[in-house]
């Protein structure tokens, strides 16, 4: 049985501010180099994250010992880069980042249809970048976040995202998010949510993922099914330092069961993870091994 995520994202506001400072003072390219030093520090002195990500590369992806070690380091570098890129984009800093969109038309169509919908992603690559670039799609996006994620980061994000197109819905104990989601969907808006993390006590689905059973949150799949709205899976991964690739499959309204959508999601996620193994950013015991 897999361990649940503890409901807190890595990183402190001071860390985010530091990245922003770094980019402004030494430039994007130099900041990328500096990141390699930071990644080395985490590689050497962050044993818990090391253990979980080592398990992922060595046991789940069956990488060799040496390849696992080099992949861990590269994974940290990619993770740092995605954070930097997020601030580059949000802060409007001049950059050379380019994007490809596979399936962008699906999102335009979903917005045009006006029936609302769910975009389900994962902590693979850089979903925040994808969310920010959705300015190109004429719809209002609601990003679901856990209430107990760091307040300060929420505030920072709230300040930096454009309020008119991106709204944050926080998952709370009082279940107010259920009503907010329903209202957003009824207004034809799109809900963006991760399908790979859950907090203790929440309903989960189980599936074989990379050769071992893991648990995933049932909520995103159940809600899309119950509200009878289209659902698609989206991912934004880095191809190299300056280039992102955005993927979206064809949205569909589930008619069989929430589990059916969930199983399709896990298959899609596994394919994406195998294509971009070093951009898996879940630093906790995902499989509960």
């Amino acid at each position: 049985m897999s361990e649940s995520w503890k409901g807190r994202s890595k990183g402190r506001l001071s860390g985010y501010q530091f990245f922003a400072f770094l980019i402004k003072k030494i430039g994007v390219r130099s900041a990328y180099y500096f990141l390699k030093v930071v990644a080395l520090y985490y590689f050497l002195f962050s044993p818990k994250a090391f253990r979980t990500i080592h398990y992922y590369f060595r046991e789940r992806l069956q990488f060799s010992k040496l390849k696992s070690l080099s992949s861990i380091y590269q994974n940290y570098v990619w993770f740092g880069q995605t954070l930097l890129d997020k601030f580059i984009i949000i802060a409007g800093i001049q950059n050379k980042i380019t994007f490809d969109f596979d399936g962008e038309h699906h999102l335009h169509q979903m917005a045009k249809d006006g029936n609302g919908g769910f975009m389900i992603s994962a902590h693979l690559g850089n979903w925040e970048i994808a969310g920010f670039l959705l300015k190109r799609v004429e719809s209002r996006f609601n990003i679901l976040m856990y209430e107990n994620e760091r307040e300060e980061i929420k505030e920072y994000l709230n300040k930096n995202y454009q309020q008119d197109q991106v709204n944050f819905i926080f998952i709370k104990q009082d279940l107010s998010h259920i009503f907010e989601i329903n209202n957003a969907v009824k207004n034809g808006e799109i809900i963006c949510v991760h399908g790979d993390r859950f907090i203790p006590g929440s309903k989960t689905f189980k599936a074989d993922f990379l050769g071992k059973e893991a648990r995933f949150p049932a909520g995103p799949f159940e809600m899309a099914y119950k509200l009878k709205v289209p659902c698609c899976f989206v991912f934004a991964v880095k191809e190299n330092d300056d280039h992102y690739h955005f993927f979206s499959n064809t949205p569909s309204i589930e008619t069989q069961s929430a589990e059916h959508t969930f199983n399709r999601y896990v298959d899609t996620l596994e394919n994406m993870v195998r294509r971009y193994p070093k951009q898996w950013f879940n630093y906790y015991d995902f499989w509960g091994h």
């Binding site: 279940l175 259920i178 009503f179 989601i181 329903n182 929440s202 309903k203 049932a218 909520g219 159940e222 809600m223 119950k226 509200l227």
Partner: peptide, 10 residues
């Protein structure tokens, strides 16, 4: 449970 509230709303 929390997801049942979705049913209730609907």
């Amino acid at each position: 449970d929390s997801l049942d509230y979705v049913d209730l709303v609907v």
